[in-house]
């Protein structure tokens, strides 16, 4: 196996939503609970889940845009959670992030040239002339016309703006990139342009990526391995083909069957899940999915299953007590 680059160890993040009179936390929202994840060099790991499952919070804790409550994030042997503010700032030369909304990510009063150059200025890399050259080269790589560099973000379309954001994130030649729903705000015909660009750049620059999205077909297209999250927990982790062909967790199965496929011959196999996602402020006892799971038993509501390994060779992990039952039941539905 390739070299390990990032290891998330027992990471949890709780947000305090209500404080007592003296500032003691009274109610907390468990956004991420005890997540373990190892990421290898050069791979793209997809994180999927529905809104509020903690996938974005997980991405942000890696850059320490929010500080984790407990746990460790090892980046090439350094625990990011133990770094000082300045050390972390320096670390962000190697770890970058692309957000969903390209409209909100760009300062409307700066030109595209200034925006892409920003990180070079911040870390004082190279002479002004070298920086200019670097900006122009990066712009070419992401497909922005060099003649347009002195324009402002509002003069660009959504897809072009996302290219600018990507150029800015990659100008420092980071090793690790977190993509938080980078194409969700884009129209279908533009989305494929940005997806192809991201995939190409990742290969060229040997980047390691975390790709966060709610869109399963997009995640499948860009990732090597996929982690499925539900209410702050990683409930299944596998190579993408194993995950799509042989999902073991009932939530993953439901999620797969709920996607409407752009194909007239495709019929949805099973009934959709009933009910809503429970509140992360007061998550269910035991397995967090048991309130909506069609196969749940008493055991599920009492104890939470650990993330277990189904196939050591393939590295297929899941957290469910009844995975065998599932594969059989799935045939009947």
């Amino acid at each position: 196996m390739a070299e390990e680059i990032l290891r998330i160890e027992d990471l949890s993040k709780e947000f305090v939503v209500k404080k007592s009179l003296f500032g003691k936390p009274q109610q907390t929202l468990k956004a991420v609970s005890h997540v373990n994840l190892t990421i290898y060099k050069g791979e793209t790991i997809g994180i999927v889940g529905e809104s509020g499952c903690g996938k974005s919070t997980l991405g942000r804790t890696i850059l320490r845009l929010v500080d984790a409550t407990s746990g460790h994030i090892w980046f090439k042997g350094t625990d990011l959670n133990s770094l000082s503010k300045e050390e972390m700032r320096q670390m962000r030369r190697k770890i970058q992030i692309v957000f969903q909304d390209p409209y909100a990510s760009l300062n409307p009063r700066a030109t595209v040239r200034e925006l892409i150059r920003g990180p070079l200025d911040a870390f004082e890399i190279g002479t002004p002339k070298e920086r200019e050259e670097e900006v122009e080269e990066m712009a070419k790589r992401v497909g922005i016309d060099v003649d347009y560099l002195d324009r402002y973000p509002h003069e660009f379309s959504g897809g072009q703006r996302q290219r600018i954001v990507i150029a800015r994130a990659l100008i420092l030649k980071p090793e690790f990139l977190v993509c938080d729903e980078p194409v969700s705000a884009l129209d279908v015909s533009v989305r494929s342009q940005v997806l192809n660009l991201l995939k190409d750049l990742q290969k060229q620059m040997n980047l390691t990526c975390i790709f966060i999205s709610h869109d399963l077909s997009v995640v499948k297209y860009v990732s090597n391995r996929i982690a499925v999250m539900y209410l702050g927990h990683v409930i299944e982790l596998a190579n993408k083909d194993d995950l799509y062909n042989e999902p073991l967790h009932p939530y993953t199965q439901a999620l797969m069957s709920a996607i409407p496929e752009p194909d007239v011959n495709h019929k949805r196999k099973s009934r959709p899940l009933s009910g809503d996602v429970p509140s992360p402020i007061d998550p269910p006892s035991g397995c967090v999915f048991h309130t909506r799971c069609p196969y749940a038993t008493d055991r599920c509501s009492m104890n939470a299953p650990e993330l277990a390994c189904a196939d050591n060779e393939k590295g297929h992990y899941f957290s469910c007590y009844y995975p065998h039952v599932l594969s059989k039941v799935a045939d009947y539905i």
């Binding site: 494929s192 192809n196 799509y244």
Partner: peptide, 16 residues
């Protein structure tokens, strides 16, 4: 241009 679930790995998405 839409990625399908059975999209081959090395196949590029069509671009408009």
């Amino acid at each position: 241009a839409i990625p399908k679930l059975d999209q081959p790995d090395n196949e590029k998405l069509y671009i408009i």
